[in-house]
């Protein structure tokens, strides 16, 4: 029998609670495929999430999972990883969860470069609470709390993470499944803080209000808006208005927190 993605799931929890056509199920699938490729044992993986539609993802996977509080998944994950650095810790957050209420934790996790792999489900909206704008809602798009269009600038979370010190940063969409899986695998293999932005779609709370009535419209929008970073680098493509790059966006080497702590232990023992 070939690999069946649902073997990584708590079968009794399916079908999941997400709306028809919600991109979260696709991202979760790509994550499960990445876990399969990483070939970790069932007991060394921990999945931590915040609060939001996307954060329900953790509860579906058959590992040690923690569905925490809104915005706080990263400090929970930091505690788990620091207490037991042998664990492979993944963190699932929504765009609002990671960039708004959890924004401070995000930049500090990047700065610490602690060995976590964060997957941000960016549907550009507060899905769970019914479609209020998030810091990642693009300008002029509509939300229930931006009925006349969004007037604030949106975050580019990948650039934010890079500036804050994350050592592996990538972006893919639900249209680019294999890329997304590859980025998660590489992010997990990076010894340090990795952030993977998964551009996903919320047909219910975002698409309907923004002239993308069906899930198909939304996936098409992703296909048309995403430009492979390699093509941009090679000069074969350039970013047009409203487009964003996908692929491995940033990578650098830096000391990792739990490894550095061993140095502290050494110094304390020599004292």
């Amino acid at each position: 029998m070939p690999f069946n993605v649902t073997s990584y799931f708590r079968q009794e929890m399916l079908p999941h609670i997400w709306c028809p056509g919600c991109g979260n199920g696709i991202v979760l699938r790509d994550f499960a495929v990445a876990l399969e490729k990483l070939n970790y044992s069932r007991q060394e993986v921990v999945i931590v999430s915040g609060i939001g539609c996307s954060s329900r993802a953790a509860g579906y996977l058959d590992f040690d999972t923690v569905h925490t509080t809104h915005g706080r998944a990263l400090p929970f994950a930091t505690g788990i990883k620091f207490a037991n650095p042998g664990l492979k810790v993944f963190v699932i957050m929504g765009d609002g969860d990671a960039s708004s209420i959890g924004g401070n934790h995000l930049i500090h996790a990047c700065r610490r470069n602690i060995d976590l792999t964060a997957i941000i489900f960016n549907n550009h909206i507060y899905g769970m609470t019914g479609g209020q704008f998030s810091p990642m809602t693009p300008r002029d798009k509509k939300a229930t709390t931006a009925p006349y269009g969004m007037i604030e600038q949106s975050f580019d979370l990948c650039r934010l993470a890079e500036a804050a010190g994350a050592t592996y940063v990538g972006r893919a969409t639900t249209y680019h499944n294999q890329l997304l899986t590859r980025l998660i695998v590489e992010g997990a293999n990076n010894r340090g803080f990795s952030l993977i932005e998964a551009v996903t779609h919320c047909p219910t709370s975002y698409g309907r209000r923004n002239k993308m009535a069906t899930p198909t419209d939304m996936v098409r929008w992703q296909k048309e808006s995403a430009v492979l970073i390699d093509r941009i680098k090679e000069g074969r493509a350039s970013l047009q208005e409203g487009q964003f790059p996908v692929g491995l966006l940033h990578q650098h080497d830096a000391p990792e927190f739990t490894a550095e702590y061993l140095e502290v232990v050494k110094r304390a023992r020599e004292k």
Binding site: C22, G25, I26, N177, V219
Partner: peptide, 13 residues
Amino acid sequence: EETCPDYAIRVVK
């Protein structure tokens, strides 16, 4: 299979 958000369809080779 890759696109189905609900794991409702599988291509078994």
